[in-house]
Nucleic acid binder design. Sequence first.
DNA 1: ATGTAACCATACCGGTCGGTATACTGTCAG
DNA 2: CTGACAGTATACCGACCGGTATGGTTACAT
Lengths: 198, 198
Amino acid sequence: MVSQASTELTPAGQRLLDAASALFYRRGIRAVGVEAIAEAAGTTKKTLYDRFGSKDALVALYLGRRFERSRAFTAAYLDEHAPDPGPERVLAVYDALAEWQHEDERGCAFVNAYAEIGGTEHPGVAVIRAENEWIRALYTRLVTEAGLRDLEDADEVGLRLTLLHEGALVTMTAGGVRDAIARARATAADLLELALGA
Amino acid sequence: MVSQASTELTPAGQRLLDAASALFYRRGIRAVGVEAIAEAAGTTKKTLYDRFGSKDALVALYLGRRFERSRAFTAAYLDEHAPDPGPERVLAVYDALAEWQHEDERGCAFVNAYAEIGGTEHPGVAVIRAENEWIRALYTRLVTEAGLRDLEDADEVGLRLTLLHEGALVTMTAGGVRDAIARARATAADLLELALGA
DNA sequence: ATGTAACCATACCGGTCGGTATACTGTCAG
DNA sequence: CTGACAGTATACCGACCGGTATGGTTACAT
């Protein structure tokens, strides 16, 4: 587990993936051409296709690596700011999200990508689904560890916290509500108190 | 207020807007070319540009008309299924959403569109923002009528219900949770009970 | 009768799309 | 020394993009 997929890339390959990630996230997938990616990476289309084979594969890699990164970021944030099981550790996920989003302003990369490639057979669709399920599983696990031992209850609360999580991202960007994540956190706190007992 | 914007369209114009709406919603905005729209409407690009001037204008009209329709649908649904003020009328918005989404499977048109045109100066961005604010205002109003007279509290609960609303759509599509809207409704019920008193 | 708006058909514009081909340089391991 | 590989540079492919131009056919109002 020492080497990661991103580590195995050649220098030009890494630059291409970095440039593609930034452009895809900021402007959308279809809006960004391979030529622009190659130019931003200071290389050529030839190298891009030698390394990744197709634009679709590059998109899937972009999503996969972003998923990896957000997982690592969240895990590190939780361990640093709320290492002990309990409601505070659950709510810290929203804090991690706020920190992750920061001044990015473009919301959830996976939701945005799904708007463009959802319903197709694009290789990135599976990554999107996996990310969404991971968020849900994370909340469910943390809620269980916080004391909600009943599996069915934990599942239900985990989903509810996920609804707030995703809703906050959408309402923040498309809705223009700056503090949507903080409001979702407050709502989640109420739900947790309700589920775990005062 | 008798005539609507859509009523003023010529027959070919109407067909074009209908075809464009279906294609944009199902496949995305950038994925659909004007040629395909004209062909689906049984007409030509010439007519499309004579009627709408540009693809961007057609997109904005698509979003605007969908906003109009969803507003009318929701209002009619509420009046039919929950005509009296109270928590049930608030929760009926989720029922209306489930009915509206039905077997559409592509989630919120505005969230999807924002993923493609957000951050640009596209004329459709304003429509997206307006739709999102309307949802929030609707929940806030219904909550107030349900008995939450304090303006600040109503604002807060209205936003929370919006988070669940948007989160449900995203979790249903990108997350693959079929009954996400029903789960959002159940969560909203708990929040309302909390806010209005048992 | 004349004008005008709506429409259809077709060809065209410059530009960009994703993807491929050719050819040359540098590096480094066998 | 010799491949093999990573890289650069550039030209090219057919297809499609949004948008325009030309020209002709109806129908209808003045």
